[in-house]
Structures are given as structure tokens and as C-alpha cells.
Design a protein around this nucleic acid. Sequence first.
DNA 1: CGTTGGCCCTGATCGC
DNA 2: TGCGATCAGGGCCAAC
Length: 335
Amino acid sequence: MPELPEVEVVRAGLAPAVHDATVASVTVFDERSLRRHPGPSEDFTDRLIGRTFTSAMRRGKFLWLPLKPPPSERVLSEIQENGATSATDVVRHAATADQSPEFPTEALVVHLGMSGQVLLRAPGAPDDRLTRIRIGLSTPAHGTLFMNFADQRIFGSMAIDELVPTADGQPGGCGSALPLVPRSVAHIARDPLDPAFDDRRFFAALTTRRTGVKRALLDQALISGIGNIYADEALWAARVHYDQQTNTLSRARAKLLLAEVRAVLAKALTEGGTSFDAQYVNVNGASGYFSHSLSAYGQQGKPCPRCGRPIVREQFMNRGSHFCPHCQRLRVVTV
DNA sequence: CGTTGGCCCTGATCGC
DNA sequence: TGCGATCAGGGCCAAC
């Protein structure tokens, strides 16, 4: 259930380790984790070996590591003349010989899905359970590291994808000023913590749409980064029923809801992300969650922290919706 | 075209 | 002790 705060914790933990790190090895244990990769696992491996990451970026729940352009033909022939003993050698050589300031053109795209984890491990560390892909890194800051992608339910994935310019010219996401985004992430809206998030456009969409507000909050093409947990939390904080039609929300209520979305995400972010049943583990492998401070999600039967009446759980959109029937009433409005 | 329902996927947990 | 049933839900796509 990693949502924006959890993915951001992973991104922030990954960033210093992957900066200028070169891929020395790739092991794919389960090809299903490459479902979103356009090609066989050999293609994934071949395109990654010897490449160097520049940074770690995130938009909503999507994470990506831009790749420096591969060495030019000229550099490759130089290497052939001088000899190289490893892929790391090749890229080291390329970095010094090929001073091209080119933008990255592709990236390793990571989505954690329901249960994905990215774990950084030193050589010789015990295997992480359910590791589907292991990427060996040669890093300037930490020497050799392994980046393990573990995923129980295999809803998550890794893929290499082309980077395309952002529509608004703003940075593609959090973590770098690079105004690029993977093609497969381009349709994902900016998240509400992104400085380039367009509030007015969001409000306008709410008045246009004919759907329930929780469905809208979970629509990553409208606003990204929110999952089932923080949707329930933000709706509880704003006292809005999950199935309230978006076009019946007053502008003031919509503004309050967006503010509560931001507050809930920011709070979780400062506490290191929320995690349940050890499904979510941060980049170092430590579980970081603060489920005790959840007001609605998973609190069915417990008293509403605001009014004391029991929180109720209902099925909605094939997931659980937790809310206070007293504080969050469905308002039927004639428009 | 906007909206909606269904499907993917497996380990942990629970009850008998 | 063993085993089957149940549960978790993000993202995508077909269908309406």
C-alpha cells in the first residue's frame, strides 16, 4: 500500500546511493515483475548493464531513475583500443572521455504496486525474501551495493522507458529539475505536493466530473499519489462522504479537501511513511509507519476521534472505505 | 468520450 | 498439523 509518502521515503533514501552509480549486474528472478517492460528480460538486462543513474525522481506513486546516455561510438572505439576489464570500467572511461552534457533519454521506471520494496544491501547481506529483481551497483559513495526489488503480490514492476518532455516545461517530478518524464508516466497527473500542481484545474475538473469524490481522489490522471489509506484519512478530516458527487462539492469544501489531502500526505511524510504488516519497508529495510495515528482507515468499530461514534467500513470500488457516518454524511444536492 | 467494473497476483492469516 | 478459504488493492483496459 505504498502511497506518495512511502514512495517519497524510498526515493529520498535511494537518491544519494544511485547518484552516479553504475549498473554492474542485473538478475531477474521473476519475469512477471517486468510486465511493463517492452521486451524480454534479456532486453531489460542488456539495456541496463554498464549504464549510470543520475538521480531518483518521483511523481505520485511512480519512481524513476534517469540513465545517462550510453557512451558514444567514439568512446566505445577508444575503449576497444585501450581495453576495459568490466562494465564499470567502460562507463568510468566514458564519463571522463565523453563530456557530452546530453540529457538522459531513458530511465528505469519503478512502481511498487501493492507490496513492492526497494532495498539497498551491502555485498554478502542475507537475501531478502520475495526478491524478484536484483541490480548490482558500483557507487562512488558506498562502493558495491545491491538494489533488491522485492514484491509479494507482483503488482509492482520495473521497466526501462523513454523520457519525454513535460507538457508544461516544469520538472518531471520530485527529485530533480529535469523537465522530463517517462512516457508511461506522462498521463499521470502531478501530485498535490508538486509545486507545479494546478489547484484551479483540479477544482474545475471536480465540477465537470460526474462521479464520487473518493473515486476522483484515487484517479491518478486527475491527482496522483493518493491511495486508499490517505483518501479515507483526507475525506475524514474534511468531513466528506466518499460517495459525495464531485460536482456537488462547494468550492470551499473542495478547497478544504485539497488542503486536508496535503496535510495528511505531509504528516505521513514527516513521520517516514505509513506501513502495515511489514508489507511496506523503507529503502534500508526498516518498517516505518504510524498506523496508530490513523483516524479512519482500519479503524472500523473504534470511536471516531472527533465525535466518538463508531467508524464504519463499507465496500466501495472493490476496496474498503472507512468513514464516520455521523461526521461524513452523504449530502444530496439538487444542482 | 467519460465513467465504471473486472481482473491481475500471492503470502499471511484464520478457522476447522 | 494441515489445508482450504479469505483478504489486501493500484493500475490498466474493455465495455457500456
